[in-house]
Simulated scan of single mutants.
Amino acid sequence: MTPMTYKGYAARIEYSDEDECFVGHIAGISDIVGFHGDSVEEIRAAFHEAVDHYLEACAARNVPPNKPYSGKIMVRVSPELHARVAMIASARGVSLNALATEALEHTAQS
């Protein structure tokens, strides 16, 4: 499933049975920015409006907006696991980064 994106930001959207509408937040930033809509079209428009408003508000306050995910992940694993996966990557002729990316992509598609 591909997330809804706009200007480099991704939306996290859920359905609220209590409110009988879709409720969303900008994902991957520490600031809390929410939006809602009754249909896919409405939630998409509300998401775009929320991102635009967030960026405008940050500019007006002269504060840099939170950046979405950078693509860099720091993962701590045991030395034994590190050694095993490094050997697997070497045996496959790929970098440890490429092996980790493959594993993460596989997990994300599940």
Rank of each mutant, 00 (worst) to 15 (best):
T2V: 11
P3G: 03
P3K: 15
M4L: 15
M4F: 11
Y6N: 02
Y9E: 06
Y9D: 00
A10I: 03
A11Q: 01
A11M: 02
R12W: 06
I13L: 07
E14K: 14
E14W: 02
E14Y: 04
S16H: 08
E18N: 09
D19V: 04
D19Y: 01
D19H: 07
E20A: 13
E20K: 11
C21T: 09
C21V: 01
V23D: 09
V23H: 04
G24Y: 00
G24K: 00
G24V: 04
H25D: 09
H25F: 12
H25Q: 14
I26F: 06
I26N: 00
I26A: 01
G28F: 03
G28S: 08
I29F: 07
I29Q: 05
D31V: 08
I32N: 06
G34R: 11
G34D: 11
F35R: 02
G37F: 08
D38V: 04
D38G: 14
S39P: 03
V40C: 07
V40Y: 12
E41S: 10
E41M: 01
I43A: 02
A46V: 02
F47T: 03
V51F: 03
V51C: 01
D52A: 03
H53W: 08
Y54I: 12
E56W: 01
A57W: 03
A57N: 09
C58Q: 07
A59Y: 05
A59T: 08
A60Q: 11
A60K: 13
R61M: 12
N62M: 08
N62G: 02
V63C: 09
V63I: 15
P64Y: 06
P64V: 10
P64H: 07
P65Q: 03
P65M: 04
N66K: 08
K67G: 07
Y69N: 14
Y69H: 14
S70G: 10
G71R: 06
G71I: 10
K72S: 13
I73E: 00
M74N: 15
V77P: 01
V77A: 13
V77Q: 03
S78A: 10
S78L: 09
S78V: 10
S78C: 08
E80V: 09
E80C: 03
L81Q: 05
H82T: 03
R84W: 03
R84A: 13
R84I: 12
V85T: 10
V85F: 15
A86E: 10
M87Y: 11
A89C: 10
A89G: 13
A89K: 00
S90W: 03
S90D: 13
S90H: 14
A91F: 02
R92G: 00
G93I: 00
V94A: 01
V94K: 02
S95F: 05
S95P: 01
S95W: 06
L96D: 03
L96Y: 05
N97Y: 02
A98P: 01
L99G: 01
T101H: 07
E102P: 02
E102D: 14
A103V: 13
A103G: 15
L104R: 05
L104N: 07
L104P: 00
E105K: 13
H106F: 12
H106E: 15
H106I: 00
T107G: 05
Q109G: 10
Q109M: 13
S110Y: 02
S110F: 08
